[in-house]
């Protein structure tokens, strides 16, 4: 997938973004607030059309930061919602969803209503909903941004395990550089708006990765530096 818009008013969210993700790869996109990360995901999910440039990507499924589970459905029915939308019979949809629930350690929570679940559990259900969309590409938009630090770390481990069980191509947008390095196969660093790719880092490390691992720390520093240098150069330009 690549996206190369011409410069044009009124607001240009992205410019000269050329990104590629291989099948089964987890690509993390980090960047400052307002650099067009969400626009990028909306383009990938077909929620909007690019003004210029091309996107070569099978339609992707979105997992937003807020879980957006439907309060009137059980956790299982929320997870199975895409199957029901594709007119799969209820019993069959539930059977498929509960199989995934069991695989990913969510069994026992099938009948819970969203408001009975913790924030972390709700995000897990939201992730299963995204998985069961049947799409090959998953777009995760700061999926753990609203969680506390401990839950976030748990969720990151869980996500890695879940993707081992159910491999997909994933585009993860985050402003947490550490999260990007811990989870991703590759990290793309975007500049402030209009966002363009400043640098791409390969993370060739085995899972599970520890935050304190020197290789992880080094990559984190590299990414932060890329973000930071971009900011200083921009300030110089203003002068």
């Amino acid at each position: 997938m690549s996206y190369r818009p011409e410069r044009r008013a009124p607001v240009q969210a992205l410019s000269e973004v050329s990104l590629h993700a291989s099948e089964g790869e987890l690509l993390a996109v980090v960047g400052p607030s307002g650099c067009g990360k969400t626009t990028l995901l909306e383009l990938l999910c077909g929620l909007r059309e690019p003004d210029a440039g091309t996107i070569e990507c099978p339609p992707a499924a979105l997992m937003p930061q807020r879980d957006l589970l439907l309060p009137w459905l059980s956790a299982l029915d929320n997870a199975a919602v895409a199957l029901r939308l594709a007119h799969m019979p209820k019993a069959q949809a539930r059977a498929r969803a509960s199989k995934v629930f069991a695989e990913l350690g969510l069994d026992g929570f099938e009948q819970a209503r969203p408001y009975e679940l913790s924030g972390g559990m709700r995000q897990r259900v939201a992730f299963v909903r995204t998985l069961l969309s049947g799409k090959q590409v998953l777009c995760l938009d700061e999926p753990f941004g609203a969680l506390d630090a401990i839950t976030r770390a748990e969720m990151q481990n869980w996500l890695v395990a879940a993707l081992t069980q159910e491999p997909r191509t994933v585009v993860l947008v985050t402003h947490d550089v550490e999260e990007a390095v811990v989870l991703a196969d590759r990290v793309a660093v975007l500049s402030p708006r209009p966002g363009r790719v400043v640098t791409e880092l390969d993370v060739a490390l085995e899972h599970p990765r520890r935050r304190t691992d020197p290789a992880v720390v080094a990559l984190r520093e590299q990414a932060l530096e890329a973000l930071g240098s971009e900011r200083t150069s921009e300030r110089e330009q203003v002068r």
């Binding site: 077909g46 929620l47 979105l62 807020r66 957006l68 439907l70 939308l85 909903r129 969309s133």
Partner: peptide, 26 residues
């Protein structure tokens, strides 16, 4: 009704009527 909710259902290929039945009517 949260517009993000409707957007999400759209990425899951919900038709306008399905989105109404699932999110708006309840």
């Amino acid at each position: 009704v949260d517009p993000d909710q409707l957007k999400l259902l759209r990425t899951l290929d919900a038709s306008r009527w399905q989105a109404f039945r699932l999110a708006e009517a309840p």
